Amino acid sequence: MLFNVGSYVIYRSIAGFPARYWWPLFGAGLALGAVNALLFVRAIVVVPLSVAYPAFSAASFALIAVIATAVFGEKLLPLNIVGLVVVIVGIALAAYAP
């Protein structure tokens, strides 16, 4: 999950730069995404996909929102936080329901 979040943070940080400057960072983001995919495939061998994917999605969603606020100064309003909590709770309920 951290590799996924790292790739999106890189993509956000290079947005607006001329291509000659961001190609190396873009490649690093792609590499992080590839490592993420490899680790996720290995994880779903031992964790059911119906649990792994929702948990991965919720954790990525929450961490990206926090990093975007802390690093890029994006606003996270109380309503956004409520929405984030609702999504995470919904995913948890769907993933862990008997």
Rank of each mutant, 00 (worst) to 15 (best):
R20C: 10
A31M: 05
F26V: 13
A58P: 00
L25Y: 07
V45E: 15
L38Q: 11
V47G: 06
F26T: 12
T69S: 09
G33E: 05
V86R: 09
N80E: 07
V86Q: 10
K75Q: 15
N4V: 10
F40P: 02
G27S: 15
R12T: 03
V82K: 00
L77S: 15
G27Y: 12
V71Q: 07
P78M: 04
F40E: 02
F72S: 10
L25E: 03
Y21M: 14
N4T: 12
A70P: 05
N4H: 13
W22N: 14
L84H: 06
R42D: 12
P18V: 00
A43C: 08
V71F: 06
L25R: 06
V51S: 02
S7W: 00
S13Q: 04
A19R: 12
Y21C: 13
R12M: 04
A52Q: 01
G83D: 01
A58K: 00
V86K: 09
L76C: 10
G29I: 04
P48F: 06
L76E: 02
I10K: 08
W23V: 15
L84M: 11
L25A: 11
V51P: 06
K75N: 14
L76I: 08
A28P: 04
G29F: 01
V82W: 01
V41M: 15
V51I: 09
G29Y: 04
W23P: 11
V41R: 15
Y53T: 06
I44N: 06
S13K: 00
Y8G: 11
L84I: 08
I88W: 02
G29N: 07
L30E: 11
A43F: 05
A37L: 14
I14N: 12
N36Y: 06
A31N: 02
S60T: 09
V5K: 01
R20T: 10
G33D: 08
S60G: 10
V47Y: 02
G73Y: 11
V82C: 02
V47E: 03
A52F: 07
F40K: 02
L38F: 12
L30W: 09
I64F: 05
Y21Q: 14
P78K: 01
L84F: 01
L2Y: 07
F26R: 13
K75I: 13
V47I: 11
Y53V: 02
F72Y: 10
F61Y: 04
R42T: 09
T69Q: 08
V35D: 01
F72C: 09
L25P: 00
L32Y: 06
L38H: 12
S57C: 13
A43G: 04
A19F: 10
V86M: 12
F40M: 05
I88Y: 03
T69L: 08
P24D: 04
S13P: 01
V82F: 01
L49R: 13
G6S: 09
